[in-house]
Design a protein around this nucleic acid. Structure first.
Length: 215
DNA sequence: ATTCTGATTCTCT
DNA sequence: GAGAATCAGAATT
């Protein structure tokens, strides 16, 4: 049991996750989210994440204060923040930070290392044939998560969704850049991904404004 | 290959 | 009422 509790594949502890979301994002690369719902197990090794750091971050859902939606981002760390977006999708975050400072890490993409058949069934139209979860809403639906999983404790082995430790990712394999789909705070490189992973989503600039040559 | 757009409803102003 | 941490398919900017 000691080996189980220390090595890759073990459920991560709250202490490991109770850090600044920018550090947590880097730390989550290579770790895995595993959902164990009624219809089976799906495990995704995280390859792309983004930090959202509450009060200082105009792109964070917490920027304008505490609301019923963003309540779980105020902690405790290690819980799941799921939100509904664009009228049809859910996105999942790992809550980090403590001390009354809200923050979380959006999980954007990963490799489906277990349960590819179930992943395909849950997301039949996704590109990648069930082997990758490319994009935050795809990743969330492949894990079978929605509104009802908001607030789940990822560090509790009894939870339907848990966060598993992974093999360390070498620093030279980690790349950073601006966050996807975010117009504000383009200067902070709070998107982290594993270089060369087939799961990493293509960058899209945020905001509805589109540059036009004339008009 | 890249760029554009419709889909669809919750949340906060 | 406007905008949204998106996706997939269609058009070709």
């Amino acid at each position: 049991m000691t080996e189980q509790s220390r090595g890759p594949g073990r459920v991560m502890t709250r202490d490991e996750l109770a850090v600044d979301p920018v550090d947590l994002a880097r730390r989550l690369l290579g770790c895995a989210l595993e959902s164990r719902l009624g219809d089976g197990v799906v495990r995704v090794r995280l390859a792309e994440v983004e930090a959202y750091r509450g009060l200082d971050d105009p792109a964070s859902h917490c920027y304008r204060g505490r609301t019923p939606r963003n309540d779980v981002m105020w902690g405790p760390a290690g819980h799941l923040y799921v939100y509904f977006v664009y009228g049809m999708h859910f996105c999942a975050n790992v809550v980090g930070l403590t001390d009354g400072q809200p923050g979380a890490v959006l999980v954007r993409a990963g490799e489906v290392v277990e349960g590819q058949d179930l992943a395909r069934r849950r997301r039949p139209t996704a590109r990648g044939n069930g082997a990758v979860a490319k994009g935050p809403a795809v990743l969330t639906s492949v894990l079978g998560l929605d509104r009802e999983h908001n607030g789940v404790d990822l560090t509790d082995p009894e939870s339907p969704v848990v966060l598993l430790a992974g093999e360390p990712v070498p620093a030279e394999s980690v790349r950073t850049g601006p966050r996807v789909g975010v117009a504000a705070a383009m200067d902070v490189p709070w998107r982290f991904w594993i270089d060369g992973s087939p799961a990493v989503s293509t960058y899209r600039r945020g905001g509805r404004v589109r540059a036009r040559a004339n008009g």
